[in-house]
Write a protein that binds this DNA or RNA. Structure first.
Lengths: 111, 111
DNA sequence: ACTGAGGTACGATGCAAGACGTACCTGAAG
DNA sequence: CTTCAGGTACGTCTTGCATCGTACCTCAGT
């Protein structure tokens, strides 16, 4: 019930290269643009993004985003929560989330 | 002598996905961090970056950067000039160059 | 205890992209 | 004109990565 937070890198350990490679994929970027546009920063289920890919591939993508330090993954055992690490990302890479948020306005077309 | 400017996308046609994929590679990113850090925006020769790769591969990488709209390539026939499209990039993706410039401080280690 | 939905682990596959060899072009210098 | 350095075009090889199939785990509900 409590949900264990899966480990990601510390704020100081965030690397631009890893982040940019994570954002290079259209599916991952569409997730990030949605998260960046939602200022409430509420925890979301991972199938609330309705990505047109299998669940194994979704697991893969969310792992990449977590290991890049962009999101937190909260493991509830049989389900998983996603939350944007807004303050961490903003402090390490100021302006990055604004770019993603701006992209969210342009329509939902990925890639 | 005049040098023809190789074509790149217009300012309005710049796409975040293409740009981020271009910046995902360590070699291309090291070029961009150098360019972003140089506020004079002077034209540079392409072997002034001393990339540890063959010249064919360098041609490939500079093409990617040009097609992403990040740089201009000026063709002099037997040599080539590189110039950052600072105003275009800054107007379309404000803050992006600042992120790259900040990365340039952290040392020259790519990837 | 059984079932079903959500998620992960592992392996295999297919494709895009980075890298380079060879050959060729261009212009400057001799 | 010849030479040579810088750059490109094309083909090839190889690596990385997105994707999925199969199998298994976890919890909630019945």
């Amino acid at each position: 019930m409590a949900g264990t937070n899966l480990v990601g890198p510390e704020v100081d350990a965030l690397e631009l290269g890893v982040v940019l490679r994570a954002l290079a994929d259209g599916h991952r970027r569409s997730v990030m643009t949605e998260l960046a546009a939602d200022r409430t920063d509420s925890e979301r289920g991972c199938n609330s993004f309705d990505l047109p890919i299998s669940k194994q591939t979704q697991t893969h993508h969310f792992r990449i985003l977590r290991e890049a330090g962009l999101i937190d993954e909260i493991d509830y055992g049989n389900r998983k929560g996603i939350r944007l690490r807004r303050t961490d990302v903003e402090s390490r890479f100021p302006g990055l989330l604004a770019l993603l948020e701006a992209e969210h306005q342009d329509g939902t077309a990925p890639r």
